[in-house]
Structures are given as structure tokens and as C-alpha cells.
Amino acid sequence: MKTQEMALITRDALLLPGGRIEVKIINPGHLKMVADVCKGTYPLAFGMLKANSHPPCYPSITQCEIIDFNQLDDDCLSIVLEGKQRVKVLSAAREKNGIWMARTLPACNWREEPILGEFALISAALEQFYEVNPDLFGLYSHIYLDDASWVSQRWLEVLPLYNKDKLTLMNKPDCHQTMEFVLELIKSHAS
């Protein structure tokens, strides 16, 4: 497998393939990085923030694309990222302008699979979650509620779990353990 250098954005949030997140860009170094990504100079990756760490994120990150941007009232830039491919950080270095560049290796995305049986509950619950969180729902042009992997990954992005616990679930070879975890969580709150 071939390694690739990518610009790295980190936040205390998770972005997985098929997911979307809106990120505010404030400093000039990051504005230049966004311009360079848009020009095709290098790809962009999003990682969960890991405090006091080098690099400043967990080793599992997601290559992403900028799919939209807006100028905010405070003259900052807001970009919407869409996760595409999971990658592993092999090494990273901080440049003079404060931007982190990571050497990455492709990792396996979870494969699509249908939601069957009682797991339809996690799909219905995600649909309800989006109804009460219209700002998050508004990031998506289409939602894939019949795909277990897509639904599981969206739950990992929004559940209030420690990043290390999210990492444990997302590093499994498929979505099954995440589906079971979310189903048990929903059932325990329903009773």
C-alpha cells in the first residue's frame, strides 16, 4: 500500500466515511491550507483531537473533502467536510504556519450491509435524532437509514463517549459491535 501526505484538521469531534461536519476556520495558516486543498496541492484529513499528543490526534483519521463553505458574520470561514476514506497516521510534523501534515496509509472502510431485525430500532432512533437536530440533519443531502454501516458511523459521531471509546468501536473490522452497543443503549433508556 502507498503512503500519502495529507493536511490535518483536528477537533474534539469524530468524522467517519459518509459523515459530514461543519468546521470554523480562524487562523491564516488554516485558511491557506484550505486554499491549497481546494487547488489540489494535497488532500485533507480530519482527526479526533488528542490533547498533549504528537501528533495532536488519534492514529485513526478520515480523509475528507470540502463540499461547501460559507463566510461567517465574524469574517471567519466555515467549511463543511465529508468523510471519504479511513486512514492511519504513520507520522506527522507541524509546519511553520502551524499546520500539521500527516503521512498516512489507507485503512479499510466498513462495508455496506443491510439493517436487519431489531437493529432497525437504531435506524429509527437516528432518524428521530436528526429531526430534533435540524442543523446536523441539514448537512446531508441524503441519509442512508437502511445501511447498517452508515447508521452505526453516524451514531459514533454524535454519541457523547470518550474519544478513546469511540476509537475502540471504530477500529473493529465491521459495524456489528457498534450496532449492538447503540441498540443496548437505546433499550436501556427506553425502559
Rank of each mutant, 00 (worst) to 15 (best):
M1G: 12
Q4M: 11
Q4K: 14
Q4I: 07
Q4E: 14
M6W: 01
M6R: 15
A7E: 02
L8N: 01
I9L: 11
I9N: 02
R11Y: 06
L16A: 05
P17G: 06
G19N: 07
G19V: 01
I21S: 01
E22D: 13
V23L: 11
K24F: 09
K24L: 10
I25V: 15
I26P: 00
G29F: 04
H30Y: 15
H30P: 04
L31S: 07
A35F: 10
D36L: 11
V37F: 09
G40K: 05
G40S: 05
G40Y: 09
Y42T: 06
P43S: 09
P43Q: 05
P43C: 02
L44P: 03
A45D: 01
F46L: 06
M48A: 11
L49F: 14
K50G: 00
A51H: 13
H54M: 13
H54L: 13
P55C: 12
P59F: 08
I61G: 03
I61W: 00
T62M: 05
Q63F: 02
Q63H: 06
C64M: 03
E65F: 07
E65T: 10
I66L: 09
I67D: 11
F69A: 14
F69L: 15
N70G: 08
Q71M: 15
Q71W: 12
D73F: 07
D74P: 04
D74A: 08
D75N: 15
V80G: 01
V80N: 02
L81Q: 00
L81V: 04
E82P: 01
G83L: 02
V87G: 00
V87Y: 00
K88G: 07
V89N: 03
L90G: 07
S91Y: 08
E95Y: 09
K96Q: 09
W100G: 04
A102K: 04
A102F: 03
R103S: 11
T104I: 02
T104S: 03
L105G: 01
P106M: 12
P106A: 14
A107R: 09
W110Q: 08
W110V: 07
R111S: 15
R111L: 13
E112K: 15
E112Y: 10
E112I: 12
E113S: 15
I115C: 08
A124E: 14
A124P: 00
L126K: 01
E127S: 14
Q128N: 13
Q128I: 03
Q128D: 13
F129W: 14
F129S: 08
D135P: 00
L136W: 01
L136R: 09
F137N: 11
F137W: 07
G138C: 06
L139I: 05
L139M: 06
H142C: 14
Y144K: 14
Y144H: 15
L145S: 10
L145H: 06
D147C: 14
A148F: 05
A148V: 08
A148H: 06
W150H: 01
Q153D: 05
Q153E: 13
L156N: 00
E157V: 04
V158H: 04
L159C: 06
L161V: 05
Y162I: 10
D165V: 04
D165K: 10
D165W: 02
K166P: 00
L167K: 04
L167W: 03
T168I: 13
L169C: 07
L169S: 05
P173Y: 13
D174S: 10
C175M: 12
M179L: 12
F181A: 05
L183M: 06
L185A: 10
I186A: 02
K187F: 10
K187E: 12
S188C: 06
S188Q: 14
S188H: 10
A190L: 11
A190K: 07
